[in-house]
């Protein structure tokens, strides 16, 4: 299972930002051909991304490219970008599993056969999209994550903004559940006010508690906070290591369910501990909680 915390949005028509993006500490660089590019510059952005992807090394960030929707310029985007083998394609405004199938068909045509299959991250940003999220999440093995486009979604259901964002609660719950059911991860919508560091901390904490694995960042300043909040803490890591150690000891003695610190350790607890260590390994958190 692919895991990542920070997904930094990078405007696709901006050479200076493209150059910098891999050094900003984000797990994923989301190179944007869609809403981050002016309508008159879509052609320029497509060619710029294509040529930049051919020659620049974006590691250690993974490269995700957000194409335009298939009913606008998405096909041209795929033709140009797929041969460059980005790690994943972000498909905006997804509402049905059929739309995913259409993308798969085009990608299969242009994908280099000697490279790993290109992955997908559909964006759910409408009421219909959310209504179909379970079938969307399950629709292709290429899908590694689903992400929530909160602002567009709220516009589509006609809600009013509240400080604690309760109007997003149902959508967030569904996203997390659908992702888990499909064996993939859910990525949360960004915080739009880039100067509100405190608001970001609160929102990201809530998001992590709800079960999201990561969050979209629309400004480099948000990356550090998001990485920190979506990483297991030092305490969690210590706990997980103890659980796993105790589990191994009990396996040797064949005891099944046991207790640690007066609390029962059964399968869900064990899975939780393993999940934490999985994140630790993937994020290179060799020292307790630090990256």
């Amino acid at each position: 299972m692919d895991v990542f915390r920070s997904c930094l949005a990078v405007p696709g028509n901006n050479p200076a930002m493209l150059l910098k993006s891999s050094s900003l500490g984000a797990d994923v660089s989301m190179l944007d051909l869609e809403d981050g590019v002016a309508p008159t510059e879509k052609d320029a952005a497509r060619l710029l991304l294509k040529h930049t992807l051919k020659t620049l090394d974006f590691s250690p960030s993974k490269v995700f490219v957000r194409i335009n929707s298939l009913d606008t310029l998405g096909k041209e985007d795929l033709k140009a970008i797929v041969p460059c083998s980005p790690y994943a394609i972000i498909i905006p405004k997804v509402e049905t599993a059929e739309q995913i199938a259409q993308v798969v068909e085009i990608v299969e045509r242009y994908e280099p056969k000697d490279k790993p299959q290109i992955r997908f991250m559909p964006v759910i940003e409408t009421a219909r999209g959310l209504a179909n999220v379970f079938s969307v999440a399950d629709s292709s093995k290429r899908i590694v994550a689903i992400s929530l486009g909160g602002e567009d979604f709220l516009a589509s259901i006609g809600s009013k903004r509240s400080r604690e964002r309760k109007e997003l609660f149902f959508a967030r719950s569904m996203m997390v559940t659908a992702a888990a059911a499909a064996g993939i991860i859910a990525i949360d919508t960004p915080v739009i006010d880039v100067d509100d560091q405190q608001g970001l901390v609160e929102d990201a904490t809530f998001s992590a508690e709800m079960g999201f694995t990561g969050k979209i960042c629309i400004n480099p300043r948000q990356v550090g906070t998001v990485n920190r909040i979506f990483s297991p803490s030092a305490t969690e890591i210590k706990w997980a290591k103890r659980i796993i150690k105790a589990m191994r000891e009990h396996e040797e003695n064949n005891s099944g369910v046991f207790s640690l610190d007066g609390k029962m350790v059964d399968l869900p607890i064990a899975l939780q501990a393993e999940k934490i260590m999985y994140l630790v390994r993937n994020y290179g958190l060799d020292r307790e909680g630090l990256s």
């Binding site: 910098k20 050094s23 900003l24 500490g25 480099p220 300043r221 550090g224």
Partner: peptide
């Protein structure tokens, strides 16, 4: 500075 790369380097 508020330039993100410079902050990352400094950190």
């Amino acid at each position: 500075t508020r330039e993100p790369l410079q902050l990352i380097i400094a950190e």
